[in-house]
Design a protein around this nucleic acid. Structure first.
Lengths: 209, 209
DNA sequence: AAATAAAAGTTAGTGACCCTAACTTTTTCG
DNA sequence: CGAAAAAGTTAGGGTCACTAACTTTTATTT
């Protein structure tokens, strides 16, 4: 009533709340990181956004639809980071390949609950068209970076399979780190060294296998 | 102090129900595989065991305690399988190393929800003493198998780090398979071939690095 | 500009769930 | 046998996801 920035005329995002849709997505994202994707409650998110617990259903079909949107955006974000990382280290270099892995793991470490959600098994989320498309786009861009490396090193035919091997290793590392499994079994492990060495071993430098 | 050490002459497992404790653990295990560890309800397990929804609390502190027991037993089971697998292929052979990986992945594929529970992030479960001990024992036995291989091939000093690399790769594969990520990104992937090749690449055959 | 439609909130209520309290029945054991 | 403990029960509190029906605010049409 008293705010001057009322009257969007075209911008659909300003009714009662301002933009409850985005506010809820943000609140859910926060809660996921704080409590884990399986523990947060939509009711909590409503309290943070200062609306009733029935309000979300004006913007989303159900709880899972919010998660879908969050996962979709996360894949998008991840892809952007990966591309930027390779640019920084120079496309085609082994360093850029290691950096790709570090970036992937760093993403998981910084947003563990979100990472778990992205790679979780909620069928409703995983089967969502948008999520699948964005996931494919994300890894497609990573694979493309590996392909550039391969092309620069005369390994063209194997780009996809090499990328998959690297992805597999790095994904394993990310998962075991955020699930705290290394600490219990291999306490003093040097993660950086392992990543670097394994990347090189999985990344043949000679064309003939 | 929580476990009664007194044996009541006869089998402790025959009161009203027979053995509700084990019946509930079994029902929960089934439900987890059918619906996922985050979706099952303890109430459902009660219905299967034909008792009221309050009955479990005579045997378990809460829902999570049942999950703890299940995860603990699963690690135990996994370790047994791994050791048996190596015996079958002959300790110290590269084949036994590949078989270890296949076994790990097979376990995940056959009991995906249980695998996710074992490597999930429920803090109550992961921090439980029994779970940590059993997890360490499980991987300890796997690492021991790798150490035997290393010793047989003059790589003694690196046993732990090599085991960790293999574990990481195999865990990544298992996770990506059960989460259905390969299918979306690398449709025609030959899993067996990838496992075999990566195992060999991650498993140096020469003592000098 | 008034009337109307549509969007975005609200309260109230349903059914499911986890867990506790208090009670009853069955088994164990001195 | 009789007391105590173990293992069930029903009833109920508190939370959650979601729906129905209503109100308020914004947008559109005449």
């Amino acid at each position: 009533m008293n705010t001057a920035d009322k009257k969007p005329a075209v911008d659909r995002s300003s009714y009662h709340h301002g933009d409850l849709r985005e506010a809820l997505i943000g609140a859910v994202l926060q809660l996921i990181e704080e409590q884990g994707a399986e523990n947060f409650s939509l009711a909590d998110a409503c309290r943070r956004a200062k609306v009733s617990t029935a309000a979300p259903y004006k913007h989303f079909k159900d709880r899972d639809e919010i998660l879908e949107i969050i996962v979709m955006r996360a894949f998008n974000d991840m892809a952007d980071h990966a591309v930027a990382e390779v640019e920084k280290h120079g496309p085609g270099t082994p360093e850029s390949m290691v950096a790709l892995g570090k970036n992937y793991i760093g993403y998981a470490v910084n947003r563990p609950a979100l990472f778990r959600l992205m790679f979780g098994q909620n069928p409703k989320i995983n089967q969502a068209r948008n999520v699948q498309d964005e996931g494919r786009r994300c890894f497609g861009s990573v694979i493309e970076q590996v392909a550039i490396y391969c092309r620069a090193n005369g390994l063209e035919a194997n780009a996809l399979s090499i990328a998959t091997r690297l992805w597999t290793f790095v994904h394993g590392m990310a998962s075991l780190i955020i699930d705290d499994k290394y600490q219990n079994v291999v306490p003093g492990l040097d993660l950086d060294a392992m990543l670097t060495e394994a990347t090189i071993d999985l990344l043949p430098t000679r064309p003939g296998k």
